[in-house]
Amino acid sequence: MSRLTVYRDDNPEQVLIDVSSPGEIAEILKPYHIRFERWSSPVTPEKNASPDEVLRVYQPYLDTLMGETGAGSADVVCINADTPNLSELRKKFLSEHTHSEDEVRFFVHGEGLFVLHLRGRVYSVLCTAGDLISVPAGVPHWFDAGLSPDVVALRVFTDKTGWIAQYTGDTIADRFASNF
């Protein structure tokens, strides 16, 4: 189940907000221009479907989304226990960073934690299968696929070179480490 937990950025123990309704999550994130939606699809590909099959199943959604965002490409990322160089990949995603374009993700299977650092607060968004999140360019964040990852997600890019991070150098992600 999706969940949003908000903390002060100087106190990972103090919960300010904790909600699990997709509508409430969307409303709380909306002032920051973060898009959060729950999609339902009449067809969901098998967990072990090829990336091409996942893209085919979601093509109608992608066409609409890419038209709205001006995105130029989409791909599928699968992160699980068999992912090569998993510990290095996890470390890369767990460091606070920004992007020069919006980061758009749709969770096909599994779950992942998008953590946003906004105006003295940390917004921890647990995204599950069926969730779409779009984080605007320049928003500091990190991503946690978990200690035992098992996630399949669509990624949408404007820049066809794909995922490029600009690391902030802030160690806040270390202070808000999860046991997810």
Rank of each mutant, 00 (worst) to 15 (best):
V152W: 11
L126E: 08
F93C: 00
E24F: 07
T5H: 00
T98P: 02
W163I: 07
A26K: 07
H109S: 06
V6Q: 14
E101P: 03
G23R: 07
R3F: 02
S50M: 07
G162E: 10
F180A: 07
G112K: 08
K92G: 13
P45F: 02
S2C: 11
Y167A: 04
A153P: 00
H97L: 01
V57A: 00
L29M: 08
L86F: 02
S87F: 05
F36M: 01
V139H: 10
L16R: 13
P42D: 12
R90I: 15
P22M: 01
Y7H: 14
P84A: 04
A137W: 01
N48A: 11
D82Q: 13
V139K: 12
D63V: 12
T168G: 10
I17V: 15
L94T: 12
G112M: 14
I164K: 14
T171C: 10
E96L: 10
P22Y: 06
Y7R: 02
G110C: 07
N11Y: 10
E37N: 05
L147F: 00
E46C: 03
A137E: 03
A145S: 14
N85T: 09
A26V: 09
A71E: 07
G169N: 05
V115Y: 02
D52S: 11
I164C: 09
T128N: 07
H33N: 14
T158N: 09
H97S: 07
R3E: 14
W163E: 03
V108D: 03
A129T: 03
D10F: 15
R119T: 04
W163C: 05
D52T: 08
L132V: 10
P22L: 05
P51Y: 01
M1W: 12
R56N: 10
F107V: 15
R119I: 01
V104C: 12
L4M: 06
H99P: 01
H141V: 05
V108E: 01
V104N: 06
I28Q: 10
T98A: 01
T98V: 15
G120C: 09
L132R: 03
H109E: 06
Y7S: 07
E24R: 08
D144Q: 06
V43Y: 11
V152K: 09
P140S: 01
E88Y: 11
I28S: 04
V54Q: 03
F176E: 09
A177P: 04
K47E: 15
G70Y: 05
I28H: 11
T128K: 08
L116F: 06
A71T: 07
D9A: 12
E24S: 09
T171A: 13
R119K: 15
D52W: 05
H109V: 02
R38Y: 03
S40I: 14
V77R: 06
T5P: 12
L65N: 08
Y123T: 08
K92I: 11
F143M: 08
V122Y: 01
E53L: 04
E53I: 12
T161K: 12
V108Y: 04
T44N: 10
A26P: 00
L55C: 07
T171E: 14
F93W: 11
I164A: 14
N11G: 08
G130E: 08
S2T: 15
V115Q: 15
A173Y: 11
A81N: 13
R105Y: 05
M1I: 04
